[in-house]
Amino acid sequence: MKNIFIAITILFSAFVFIQCTEDEVTSTENGTLKLEFDNVVGTSNLQLNTSNFAFENALGEDFKVTWLSYYISEVRLKKEDGTYFVDPVAFDGSTGFYLIDEADAESHVIELKDVPPGSYTEVTFKIGVDASQMTQGAQTGPLDPSIGLFWSWNSGYIFFAMEGASPVSTAEGNALVYHVGGYKTLDGSPNLVNNIKEITLTFNGDNPIVDADEDPQVHIIMDLKKFFNGPAGNISFASNSVRHSPASCVDVAQNMAAAFNVDHIHQ
């Protein structure tokens, strides 16, 4: 009896072993992994330009959204064996930068190409465009300043832009304006703020497997409700409806970093 057990175990592990090696043999070709960014407000899907104030922040203040865009950059995927796939970044912004624009459904999916086969455990990315890119001079592609996410007076990109309206906003036209940016840190100017956030989201064991035949898709949720209510506090539209400079965005930038979550993975 015991012997049969041992025999089965050996056979089984041999089988697993063979399967594993077979697996490795068949998937030496690189594949694609997709990151889908799905913008929501709490439990509702985000919609632009609703006719009424369709959404509510954590303080119960109603609002609507007219514009939501943000930059994702310097994406890295961590493999089970601890190695990284690093999405290449071009000096002129033509690769490695992604503008997620709520108004453009196609922009919601980032395709990472030429990813080595394997099982991946986490994804890391930055929200925004950091100093190392800015020292390279004029940018193109998703970073073309004509897209309208460039601060000309304080040169730099708006990392995350949300505009809309709330009946409690005291700004002209009840406007809501949140433009998060600011990457400049200089010796001797400790007061300049760096709002660049790098975040890592783990796949919690539900690892996407990349190989030549499979394009797994990671479904990431960005919850705007958390942008207004997160680790750095609860933002009231009544008292804080317009923010568009680096220092004034320190708290929303911290909330922003906590607004992203991996929801599920399509293998």
Partner: peptide, 9 residues
């Protein structure tokens, strides 16, 4: 502005 390329913008 911290790069000449961005001045004309």
């Amino acid at each position: 502005v911290n790069h000449l390329d961005f001045v004309p913008i």
